[in-house]
């Protein structure tokens, strides 16, 4: 019984916005299954009372003053854009409204 099915991999690809080909799905599903087998070893560790670490170092309250710093020029901002129009980023039509 694999820990992840081909259908689940296809679902993940949709979530991650990657248009995987059938070949890739065939290839990737067993590889991911194998890797999940490896990483699932973390559940062997008894850690109920252990606090999680999301930051390696215990810093807190790092904030900046509410001050303006120079922006990019619109030319710089748009310099890498695949397409631009009217000083805006031109993107393909958006079908669905924001989530």
């Amino acid at each position: 019984m694999p820990s992840i099915t081909r259908e689940e991999v296809a679902h993940l690809a949709r979530l991650a916005r990657i248009e995987l080909s059938d070949d890739e799905l065939d290839h990737l599903a067993p590889q991911l299954d194998q890797i999940i087998g490896l990483v699932a070893q973390v559940s062997d560790v008894a850690a109920e009372d252990i606090p999680p670490t999301s930051h390696a170092l215990p810093l807190s309250n790092v904030m900046r003053k509410d001050e303006n710093v120079p922006c990019l020029t619109p030319e710089q901002a748009l310099s890498g854009a695949p397409a631009a129009e009217d000083q805006r980023f031109r993107v393909p039509r958006i079908l669905s409204e924001e989530a």
Binding site: R64, D66, N68, P74, A77, Q87, R88
Partner: peptide, 22 residues
């Protein structure tokens, strides 16, 4: 606020497009 939540760009309403970015 004068600046954005995570950077120092201004927040003025109605500015020319893409002039308040970094």
């Amino acid at each position: 606020t004068k600046s954005k939540m995570f950077c120092g760009c201004p927040t003025e309403f109605g500015a020319e497009p893409n002039t308040q970015t970094c």
